[in-house]
Design a protein around this nucleic acid. Structure first.
Ligand SMILES: Nc1nc2c(ncn2[C@H]2C[C@H](O)[C@@H](COP(=O)(O)OP(=O)(O)OP(=O)(O)O)O2)c(=O)[nH]1
Ligand SMILES: [Mg+2]
Ligand SMILES: [Mg+2]
Ligand SMILES: [Zn+2]
Length: 561
DNA sequence: GCCGTTTTCGGCCCGACTGTTTTCAGTCG
């Protein structure tokens, strides 16, 4: 039984207990499940389970029973009382523990199929406490759901929230509009789009919001909170508050939920109450205009959104020990950019101008594919020579900006590069990365990456895990050994910021930092607009707590060659 | 069931929207 399965069962127990109105235990089981979900080691490898946060002796014992027997008596007994497919039913909006219980008792509904049939026969509307509206909601959800992916890419959230805020602002009813939730925290995937607005006319603003042309369905609508679904199937939540409440509302709406709960507990312990409307002491407003004010009043330093996951940031903020996170303005260049000379779409000059004039970089590393990779239209020696001349010509026209003559080369299964080191001697910067044979044994893959890192011509290990979000699984290797090699040979690991790679991800970056690894945030651009993905890479870096000095491309060009 | 600069019992975040509702439960953020 793996971690996800154990967490799933603990979550189901929480729901079964809620059905019986058991107080507090559901929260305890949910927290335990969350702890397990965020674990990066297998439960079976952990000896003292009850030393994990939110897992005490009782849940630890239950986990052990699950791990050794594959079953849990306590869970089986709970299920016997309400033998329904919880996972399936709970995904239907509006279906919570109480509704599931009621429908089982009254109509023997055990799963989605039963639910759909009952709704079609108009049986649900007759249940006391339910009605025709609920019946219709259930039906339309079950029939429309089909194949919707639940979460989506961060970049889609960033772009769509920008578009919606722009649309809302056209009404002149918005004072401040900002994306919140997981978008503001820069999570690699987002479940919905959360937008906070301040306005003097919330009612009118909500009318505008729920009547936008992209709205397919209005999920709920109130004066301070409304939700819609777009024609692309994305849910958008908008909260509207007064400008004077902006800080506390943003603190609330940015989350994470777990962070909020923890901060609110601290407020309680100090005799305050914290909500989206402000920090209060005996109904007297203490803070609320800015987030900074709220955190300060609670004895904390301001916590950057990317860190608000209740993974230790609150303690650090109290002890004034938060890291000073890397910022966009610290980035001096992008060291993994493709041009027309391989599979990119853009001329070198266009790329250079954008980096120099718009992004204010001091350098770019042109890392067109070189040798070996047929699919990516790799350069041969002749192409490389032609490109070098173009680079030199352009460089002679710049002051304070430099195009670095780099290459991206393939790492073969044995860890040798796609081309020999002699052929690489002409390049000043070499990104080595895996592009095929993703399924080696862990040992072989580990040796493959270590051999690449060991190679004196290699400057950087590109997209180290090769995972694609919602797509290819990461390649498997011994993390500790690879991190160790990266430190030993003084080679940074790439934080590849391409929207569907984001590789290394936040968690692995955080673990690597603890082992002393350094990093390089690259966009892997193949077109001008990809260069802006740097902010996705910054999101990963900041979520992992990286500072300027952890990152190669915050350094001057003379220090990286 | 978990947890502890109000340490081993007594508390556990707080509020909006819907409709099941006419004074509130349930679900969701
Ligand atoms: N205090 C408190 N705040 C919550 C709760 N649930 C959600 N929030 C706040 C924090 C969340 O970041 C914010 C938006 O809620 P979402 O459900 O959209 O979650 P979030 O955006 O963090 O993740 P997502 O990617 O949408 O799944 O609302 C809660 O139970 N209590
Ligand atoms: Mg969200
Ligand atoms: Mg939301
Ligand atoms: Zn590349």
């Amino acid at each position: 039984m793996n971690n996800a399965e154990v967490a799933g069962i603990l979550n189901n127990i929480a729901i079964l207990l809620e059905m019986q109105d058991v107080p507090f235990k559901p929260v305890a089981y949910r927290r335990a499940a969350l702890t397990i979900t965020s674990l990066d080691t297998d439960l079976s490898k952990i000896k003292d389970l009850d030393s994990l946060p939110n897992i005490g002796i009782h849940i630890a014992k239950k986990i052990n029973e699950l791990l050794t027997t594959g079953k849990l008596d306590y869970y089986e007994k709970l299920k016997k009382k309400v033998p329904v497919n919880i996972e399936e039913l709970i995904t239907v909006p509006g279906m919570g523990p109480k509704t599931i219980l009621k429908l089982y008792k009254e109509l023997k509904i055990k799963n989605k199929k039963d639910l759909e049939e009952a709704a079609l026969k108009q049986k649900i509307r007759n249940i006391k406490g339910l009605g025709a509206v609920m019946e219709q909601k259930i039906l339309s959800h079950i029939q429309l759901e089909k194949k919707e992916e639940k979460r989506t890419f961060l970049i889609e959230g960033l772009d769509t929230s920008d578009e919606i805020i722009t649309t809302l602002k056209k009404s002149n009813l918005v004072e401040t509009g900002i994306a919140a939730g997981s978008i503001r925290r820069m999570k690699e995937t987002i479940g919905d789009i959360d937008i906070l607005c301040t306005s003097k006319k919330p009612k009118e603003l909500m009318d505008v919001f729920t009547k936008m042309s992209v709205v397919k369905e209005v999920i709920s609508k109130g004066e301070t909170k409304s939700s819609i679904r777009t024609n692309k199937g994305l849910q958008v939540d908008v909260r509207v508050v007064k400008q004077s409440e902006f800080g506390s509302a943003l603190q609330y709406f940015t989350g994470s939920k777990e962070h909020n709960v923890e901060v609110r507990k601290i407020a309680i312990s100090k005799g305050f109450k914290l909500s989206e409307y402000g920090l209060f002491k005996n109904d007297k407003l203490i803070a609320g205009k800015t987030e900074d004010e709220v955190y300060k009043a609670l004895g904390m330093d301001y916590i950057p959104p990317e860190l608000r996951e209740n993974t230790g940031e609150i303690d650090l903020a109290i002890r004034h020990a938060l890291p000073i996170l890397v910022e966009q303005s610290d980035i001096r260049g992008d060291l993994h950019v493709h041009s027309k000379f391989s599979d990119g779409l853009t001329s070198i000059e266009e790329i250079a101008n954008y980096c120099k004039d718009v992004l204010k970089y001091e350098y770019i590393g042109l890392c067109d594919h070189f040798g070996g990779l047929k699919i990516a239209n790799a350069m041969n020696e002749k192409d490389a020579a032609k490109r070098l001349k173009e680079i030199n010509d352009l460089n002679s026209t710049y002051s304070g900006f430099k195009i670095i003559n780099g290459a991206e080369v393939d790492i073969k299964p044995d860890g040798k590069l796609g081309v020999n080191n002699n052929a690489l001697s002409k390049f000043d910067f070499v990104t080595a990365s895996v592009h095929s044979s993703f399924n080696l044994s862990i040992d072989d893959m580990t040796n493959r990456l270590i051999n690449a890192l060991k190679n004196e011509k290699v400057s950087l290990l590109g997209h180290p895990t090769c995972r694609e979000i919602f797509g290819r699984k990461p390649i498997l290797f011994n993390e500790d050994k690879v991190f160790e090699a990266a430190v030993k040979y003084n080679k940074p690991l790439e934080i590849n910021a391409f929207f569907n790679r984001m590789d290394l991800n936040d968690m692995m970056t955080s673990r690597a930092k603890k082992r002393g690894v350094t990093f390089c945030i690259d966009t892997d651009s193949h077109a001008i607009k990809h260069l802006d993905y740097i902010r996705l890479g910054l999101g990963i870096a900041r979520r992992a707590g990286l500072t300027k000095k952890d990152i190669l491309n915050t350094k001057e060009v003379s220090k990286i060659l």
